[in-house]
Each structure stands twice: as C-alpha cells, then as structure tokens.
Design a protein around this nucleic acid. Sequence first.
DNA 1: CTACGCTAGGAAAGAGTTTTCCCAGTGGCC
DNA 2: GGCCACTGGGAAAACTCTTTCCTAGCGTAG
Lengths: 354, 354
Amino acid sequence: MESGYVTLEQVAEHAGVSLATASRVINGSTRQVSQRLRDKVTASAQELGYLANASAQTLARNSSSLVGLLVHDIADPYFSSIAAGVTRHTEERGLVLVLGTTSRSAQKEGRILATLRAHRARAVVLVGSRSTDDESNRRLAEEIRLFRRQGGRVACVSQEGLPADTVTPDNHTGAADLARHLIAQGHREFAILAGPTDLWTARERLDGFHSALSGAGLELAHHNVVHGAFTRDGGYESTRRLMAVGTGATCLFAVNDVMATGAMAALRDLGLRVPEDLSVAGFDDIPTLRDLTPALTTVRLPLEEMGERAALLALEEEPGEEARVITVRGEVVERESTAPPSVAARGKNTSGTA
Amino acid sequence: MESGYVTLEQVAEHAGVSLATASRVINGSTRQVSQRLRDKVTASAQELGYLANASAQTLARNSSSLVGLLVHDIADPYFSSIAAGVTRHTEERGLVLVLGTTSRSAQKEGRILATLRAHRARAVVLVGSRSTDDESNRRLAEEIRLFRRQGGRVACVSQEGLPADTVTPDNHTGAADLARHLIAQGHREFAILAGPTDLWTARERLDGFHSALSGAGLELAHHNVVHGAFTRDGGYESTRRLMAVGTGATCLFAVNDVMATGAMAALRDLGLRVPEDLSVAGFDDIPTLRDLTPALTTVRLPLEEMGERAALLALEEEPGEEARVITVRGEVVERESTAPPSVAARGKNTSGTA
DNA sequence: CTACGCTAGGAAAGAGTTTTCCCAGTGGCC
DNA sequence: GGCCACTGGGAAAACTCTTTCCTAGCGTAG
C-alpha cells in the first residue's frame, strides 16, 4: 500500500507462513494447502494489496502470458478486424497481447519476433501475406524456428508456407467464384488491379480470376492488368493509370477491398459512374465497405473469425509435427457496385478518359 | 544454439570473462571495459546467438520496456488511427506495445491496468472518453495513482480530469465552429445525434453546438436531440428513431463520424438524399470518411498525431506535479454532405417518413 | 620510495518468484 | 507395535540478470 511494492515474502510474513506456502496458495499449485493457512494467506494478500511481479514469475516459470500479434498496419481495417478477433480470444484467457506493426518490412518483423523471444512470449500470430522474396522468407522461417524451439507457439494468417500452423483464405477459388459470377452477369472484358507482383495473396487472386476467365473461353488483355501498391492510394493510382491508357473492360476487379475503394474514388473523380459505366468488385469484405455508395461487391472473408481461429491454433491446439493449414472459403457477396454491362459503357471506357 | 537458452553466464565463460564484465559490455553501462575484452564478449555473444532474457532484466532493473495502450475497440477507425500514432512512437524507441481493448468496460480497464502494473510497464496511454459515472472514474483514478506510484507514466487521450497528462480535443469550440459554419450556410433548424448521455466527449460536443445556436438566436427543439450508442449502428438506429417521429430540421449533426456514417446509411434506406433532403455533419474526420458518398462534412482532428503526442507525454516529458493538458483544436472540413437547405427539404422532413 | 587516487575487473548480493527436496507427523496394515 | 505410505509444511536452490562492493595494479606526487 505504501510507496514500494508488496512482495510475496511480506505477505507470507504477515500471514505467518513460509514463502513456499504463500506461493502455493496464490497460484493454485498441485500441492494441497490446508484451508486454515489458505485463508490466512488470501486475507493477508488482500489486506496488503499484493500484486505478483510478472517478471519474477516469468523468470521462475520460464514462460510468460504474453502473446504477440504482428500486422503490417493497424489502421488498415483488414488488419484491425483480424486483430479484434485475436484480442477477443487472448483477453478471454487473461493473456497479454503485444502488438507489433511491421509496415511490410521483413527486417522489422524479424526484430519484433526477436523481442518476443526475449520476453519468452507464449505464442505469436503473424498476419499478412508473405512475399515471394525467398531470402526474406527464409530468414523469417528461421526466426520462427528459433521461437518455437524455445517453446513458443506460432500461427499465421494468410501466410501459408512458413513452418507454423496457418489460417488462410482460398484466394484462388474465391477469385474464380467471383469471376464466374461476373461472367454470368454478362461481363466479357475485365480489368484487374493486381496489387504488388511479389505478394502471394495478390498473385493467387489474380491467378484464380484469370483461370476462371480462361475456363469460360475469355481472354484477359495484357494492358488490362495493372500492378500497384496494396493500399487505397495504390488502387486510386492504378485506376488512374488504367483509365489514362483506356480499357475496353466493363468490369474492374481489385484484388482487395482497400484498393477497390481507391478505384471507386478515382472513377468518381474521372466522372465515371459505378456500376453504370464500369462495374467494380473487390475481395475481403472489410467492415467499412457497406457504407460506400454504391456498396461494393466482394468476396466475403470472416476476418474476425480468422483472427480468432489463428489465436486458437496458437494457444489451444497441440503443436503437431508438421504445419496444419486451415483453409477458409470466401463467399461472393453481390452488392450495387456490379451490374450487367451496358452497351454505352463499352464505348466510353475504350476512349482514353483521363 | 542448441535446444535451450543461451545465458549471459555462458557468454561470459566462452569469452573468458566474469559475468559482470559481460553484462557491462552487452548493455553499455557507465563503467568502462577495455576494448580487448569488449571485443571478446561481443564475438562470443554473436557466436552463441545470445539474446538477453527480458524478464530477468526487468526484474534486476525493476523497469521494463513495455508500454500499454488501452482502447475501447481496435476495429473502430477512430481508435486504430490513434493506435497507429502511438505504435509509431513506441517502435521508434524500441519499446514493446501492449494492446488492451476494454469494450467500454471500466472494470476491464482496471484489470488491464493492474496487469500492466504487474509487468512493471513503463507507461500507459489511455484512449477514449471518460464517462460521467463518478464511481468508475474514482476507481480508475485510483488505479492510475497506483501505477504512477510504481514509477509508471500515464497519458490520456480525450480523458481530461484523470490524474495524468492529457491530450484532448477542444470539443466545445469544434462543435461551435461547425454550428456557425452550418448556420452561415443557411440552416436554421438542426437535429443532433447526441450519443450516450454519460460520455463527456459526447456532452461537450452537444453543448458546444447548442451554445453556438443560442448565440445565433436559434432554438434547438427537444425532440430533435436523440441519444444512442456511440457507434455506427447507434447512429443508424438513432436516425431511424428521429425520422420516425419526424423532424423539421434541415441539417443533422452526429457527434462523431461513425454515428454520422450510420446516419447516412439510415437516410439512404429511408430514400432520403444527402444533402438535398437533409445535410449531415460529423466530428473526428476518421480516414474512412473520404470514401463515403457524399463525402462527410466534419471537424477534423489529427488522430494519429494525437496518439503520438500522448506517447510523447508519457515517455519523454518529465512527469510534473500537476497534470498537463494539451488541447487540440479541431478544424471544420466542408465536404459534400452539407449544402444550403432547400425549401423542399423542410416540408419533406416534417412529415414522419418512416 | 611510499602513499594515494584511479581504473578495470571480479565476487557476490540482490531482484521476486517457483519448485525441489527434505522432514515431521499421521494413519493404516500386518 | 513397528513399518510404510502419505500428507502438509518449510528451507533453500534455481531462474537470469544488474549493480554494489571489493581488490589488484598502475601511475603520480610528495
């Protein structure tokens, strides 16, 4: 209660028992303690306002209650939704969540992982698409192995291929489903905001979409695939580039929702109407989406649930020898941003608009 | 490198020096160590892959590198923006951020604060409006005092009145500025989505708006002030209630942006156009806002910067005896959701629409 | 040449827990 | 009644660092 800390030793003394007994009462060990002493200790702890020193506990037990969560950018609704799922799970269990934001830097990711290792974190959840850069993947995999060797558990979201359990969306199928849906709606010519070339998630969605087009006997013009940053501004900028050149497409597919959001803004600025002049579809179903006008057609992923399941993998399930992969199937959600193509639209989009 | 951990003792032995010397080399103490030994130790540490045990360090130093961040809901863009500012600051300094989400429960807030205390966290940043419930404020204040007594630092965002430094928006002035702006635009009758009655932030914004109306000789009809949850769905639901009764207002002010977003959705569902039938304005300028159609008129707060400044207060500045308050002035940003009222609108909104 | 101050290094004492090991007491069984 | 198993309690080691205190060695001044 005074200025300093209350230690377990003080509690023990106050209760007239040994340190060992006090410890056994406080943290419910396997050993029995008589009710009489038990009551004395809890009463003393209460009275003195005892709060265990977490570092001392971690040191003695060699295991902490820290759980790491690594995301690229916590202000991105995709990540903050997943984060909400992870926090829900960890807080229910009285664990402490450590948030690391990596800004898509593999180096920073490694550094944070090392910090978590230094803290003897119990588990870590890594969120975000891995890149196709083999060197940084190798180093990340090495850090993960070190972490696991120390008894830490690791789970990934959307990062299949690392030496850890993973929850991952079926990007290929989701994108293919969406493509088939749009084809059924009457679209024949598509443009794609394909995101960065070195991100697996982006690639898989592009591939899935592409293969469904091929399956329907449709071609995807080379100039209709635009690469750019995986962000809202990346989507905006990619769309400007696409429209500056001109596209014959009647439907624009952005490989994630934040890019689609940027695309809609760009089209609005260019004076094009969605979906009358051009249909737009995205992927992920981030929560902010339903308030756009027109509301965005997309492939719904249960983001919060994915975070929760990753936390579950990392905290509950037994490690297992080889990495397990839980695949989450996305579901096409049709909203107002896509509609059957109009003849007028074709002509309009062919002439370079910007 | 083997299965176990490498301890500093092993490094010292490998380098042929004492534990004390090894420690001094690794953590750059005030004491000098000869270059020769210094090199030997760093080489050994490198070779053995030494990583300091953070818990042992915390225990020995009685001070950790943990910084807490408490928000109500990390998936809310208001909080995730502020969180981004805080993480930027802490990561630059190599500190570890612990994220706690409180779901607006004072009890949970207290529990997390105790956990941080147990971990000897260096500082904590509390984000979110404090309530007008004196009892829970008192308990929170007590927890903060305990935390500070242990040498921890505390800073708040938007929670003036607690025994800690605070970064807070000038809600009253911001709302008044907005009101004057809307009056200048020609509006005379307003409706307000006032949020919960027990949240200071909501109250101050309501008061500021109200007082500017009074200053202009305008009255605010009682039935035009609707209370409800401080969330998007709260805004949606409040708007439905407001419109069911019918309002003579030409402009709707929601005391925060997420509520305004819900309001726009409700109006859309009711078949009302913004701003032709009804103008809508919010407060905060959360980043997702610019992608709404029409884009929302609001009072801009520099959210990320506020998070950063709070982190700065908690980590850099000297504690000081009494709590300092940094007031951040908001700036009215006019976008398309507000426009001069049309005569048609008046008639329309008077008749109960829903 | 001795005394003194300074420096670099090491031994050891913490920091606050958990857990192992030991001991005394009790009850049951032959 | 003696032996054994079992129980509840305490002493002390262990966990991995940091930091204080001590000492040996060196240079310098008187």
